[in-house]
Design a binder for these strands. Structure first.
Lengths: 115, 115
DNA sequence: CCATTATATAAGTACATGCTTATATACGCA
DNA sequence: TGCGTATATAAGCATGTACTTATATAATGG
């Protein structure tokens, strides 16, 4: 698996999308597995539409893919993306985000969706 | 030299600054050595004030340092920055920018400043 | 000193971004 | 079919961003 060089503009576009606290947290959350939208809302403590709009940007860019199951939508990293390596390099640099989920769970604030 | 984990907010802030074509090119140019402002202007084909404003952002963030010599100002990567490793990882992903400088020189459009 | 050159800053403006509230869509279930 | 829940979209607004033009600062050389 060779790394193919990305165009400068593509790297800039990628970093621009990653350069946001909310989106970076979302990607950190799905780094090791898919997450449901309601989990993002819970962890991020943000309004559902706001989260949804960030997810759209990540989805439009192809950084994440969605899987619909019942009334829930699960998001995960898209390993097939051209900039996947770059994204992973970046995610390696941030503190673990999954802890936030387990912390919430421990605090009794259980996530509603049964993922 | 261990890599110390960066705060998520710091990574986001860093990527936001890197997520711009002009600034990414500037950093690509100084990756292996200092460059003079007039070189950036020449390569980027942008107005001098615009370039200067991008340089200020990079300088304010501490990504680059400046060295004044006569009437010229030379910029270089600041290897002491907390996010230096992240920045280098990113710069590794973009095409070589120095070629643009040598290309200009070959084309006879010599840079004025004698660096 | 004065003119020239290199660079920085300031002010104005067009456009992008990220929220908000309101509403639409879509699914599951009684 | 109709209600509740999960998610997406739309519209509006405040703020941020990246240019522009004009001007300030600083160094150099006559």
């Amino acid at each position: 698996m060779e790394k193919t060089q990305l165009e400068l503009e593509q790297v800039a576009h990628t970093l621009k999308l990653l350069g946001d606290k909310t989106r970076l947290t979302i990607l950190g959350l799905v780094k090791d597995g898919e997450c449901c939208v309601c989990e993002f809302v819970e962890v991020l403590q943000m309004s559902q539409p706001s989260v949804s709009q960030h997810l759209r940007k990540l989805r439009d860019a192809g950084f994440v893919k969605e899987r619909k199951s019942g009334q829930w939508v699960f998001y995960s990293l898209n390993a097939g993306h051209e900039a996947f390596d770059l994204i992973q390099e970046v995610l390696q640099q941030i503190p673990d985000q999954k802890e936030k989920l387990s912390a919430l769970e421990k605090a009794g604030l259980r996530i509603q969706c049964d993922s």
